[in-house]
Design a protein around this nucleic acid. Structure first.
Lengths: 349, 349
DNA sequence: GGGTAGTTTTGGATCGTTCTAAACATGCCA
DNA sequence: TGGCATGTTTAGAACGATCCAAAACTACCC
């Protein structure tokens, strides 16, 4: 019988080589399925690999080959179901390609974002998928990731000198068209006084959705009262808290296009508190189609963005870029789909 | 002026050493903040590091030091908000400790689980946090991860020869007590005919929750009809589909303890379809306290498990184990908290 | 000038792979 | 017998960091 496998220490190529009396090079060739090795040698080596319970050390191989087999995935809010689905999609594709996902979640803090990026960069990822925290600065991010590692910007534009980052790939939702569709739908339902509710003006997606809303209103010849444009933190809680603002002026709206589903669900609660029945006395739409949207009371009309598909797409885009680092940068804008449910009722008689 | 930084290639320790005329060893000492280096030398080296835009190569360092700075996080369903929150908690702690999270999501498939574990192992994680897919086999997992890498089992027990894996740490929810609390609450509301609805009997958490339910029923001297124990896939869709089973027998229940929130929300829809108003004609409870539970109609009485805190706890447990590999294995059972909302009404008159 | 103690610096081996170029074996043909 | 093609194996130098032991400086005192 051969030697026993080493204890406490990991089994290496050399252990295998020694165990069946060939050189390290030969074992390495076997591992990578090279046609150079003799059938009998291969069988012997493979038997020994099994016997000792060998585990490939990809870090060592990557070091030698100056390659990388990981992609960094940095998200502003992993707890948000939209990004969780996105992450699942990313990991699905990366996993099936032999890449491993380095996860980093920033909790919407630009400081943590830079720290996380810095820490992940030390592991030399082949590429980065970044959904930036609100208020992220282009040059700071560039400073953290350098110019060597390809980066795919997802979901949000960054602020600052964007021209320095025009080599980044981009994957965005068609926010403007989505909000336009929602607004047009409410107009078609007969509404004339329509608000745009929620989101931060600082964020690029909010600006784009507002633009789509404004476009539809203008096209229909409808006026927009200033008090119909209400900002709030894009979560349920603040959406409840700010909802009174919609009704502060003389001309109360009869419907609202909401920044996203969380805000819309919050606004529903706020309406209830004022004695208004959402979907009967007041119409509203969301954005994202999170799972709750289909089961809320009433079910929420919203824009489906299929985050898992976006994740898969993002993974494919970054892998393509890793393969061809010098190809021209790509900006992809994906369409969104209006899902009409009960929340977008006609105006109350 | 010094040399320009190298193009196309990453900046290494040697580049810095050459750039300011010291040895690689000195640069290495500076990087690690050793007190051995002279103030002036340190300043010169640090200037050069900045100038060339040096990025530490942790993989190379780990190779030499035979250490690791990553933890693998393998989840059966990342898209589930419960696990997404959990992952966010894990990453929060790991990130703040200088560790990086290697993400793997298995989509509840045991095959993919083994593949993912195998792929992650090649990156030599210091430890593994695993929430196993349903039906995972203890010995197969052991075969994939070996005995050298510490593993923390989260949320579910694995099947098969568990004694081979008794060196693993475990972090479980107190499923039994949770279900008992929910059942006792329904009994206190006045219900006598209470069902246990949903989940797979194959899963350990389902068995434990059923046990808690049975315990409370027995303690109250209440009988359990066989047709009140209904299995279903633990998602909303199948929960709707199977809900008719509850009413198949002569003795229809007036309340149900549901396996989890998703199932409870599905059952609500099923009740609606039968013309029953959940929270008025029929009482039910969930498990998990997902975000939707608070905003469903009616709001769902459920058991809060604070998944983000569990994530933090899991990260801390595995880090502790990495520090002390030979300490006795630990099994942690975390309490859950009953949140009473409107869905658990008294029986209809 | 030499000895001593203390502070800094350094060459070279090493971690576990891959790569290159060369060595070795075999068979065939001239 | 030598030359050449084909097939298989291998020694040893990388990759980018760390570690160790030893060397090279200082400063100081006799």
């Amino acid at each position: 019988m051969g030697n026993i496998p080493p204890v406490g220490r990991k089994v290496t190529l050399s252990d295998i080589a020694a165990g069946c009396d060939v050189s390290r090079a030969t074992v390495s060739l076997v591992l990578r399925g090279s046609p150079l090795v003799n059938k009998h040698t291969r069988a012997r080596v493979e038997e020994e690999l099994r016997r000792q319970g060998y585990v490939y050390n990809r870090a060592a191989a990557n070091l030698r080959r100056r390659t990388s087999s990981s992609i960094a995935l940095v998200l502003n809010d992993l707890a948000n179901p939209f990004f969780a689905e996105f992450a699942a999609g990313v990991d699905e594709i990366l996993g099936s390609t032999g890449f491993v996902t380095l996860l980093g979640s920033t909790g919407e803090s630009t400081e943590r974002e830079l720290a996380v990026l810095g820490s992940l960069m030390e592991h030399g990822p082949a590429g980065i998928i970044l959904s930036p925290a609100e208020g992220s600065d282009a040059e700071q991010i560039l400073g953290a990731v350098g110019t060597q590692t390809p980066l795919l910007l997802f979901n949000r534009e960054v602020s600052g000198d964007v021209s320095a980052c025009d080599h980044w790939d981009r994957l965005f939702l068609d926010n403007q068209r989505g909000a336009r569709l929602a607004t047009e739908h409410l107009i078609a339902q007969g509404h004339r006084r329509i608000a745009f509710y929620g989101g931060h003006l600082g964020s690029s997606s909010c600006k784009q959705r507002r633009a789509g809303y404004a476009e539809a209103m203008r096209a229909a010849g409808l006026a927009v009262e200033p008090q119909w444009m209400v900002e709030c933190i894009p979560n349920r809680l603040d959406a409840v808290a700010q909802s009174h603002q919609l009704f502060a002026g003389a001309q109360a709206p009869t419907a609202a296009v909401c920044y996203n589903d969380a805000v819309a669900l919050g606004l529903m609660l706020g309406l209830h508190q004022r004695g208004l029945q959402p979907g009967t006395d007041f119409a509203l739409t969301g954005f994202d189609d999170i799972a709750e949207a289909a089961v809320s009371a009433p079910p929420l009309t919203t824009l489906a963005v299929t985050p898992r598909d976006r994740g898969r797409q993002a993974a494919e885009l970054i892998l393509q870029r890793v393969k061809e680092p010098s190809a021209a940068p790509r900006q992809t804008i994906v369409p969104v789909q209006l899902l009409v449910r009960d929340s977008s009722c006609p105006p109350h008689a």
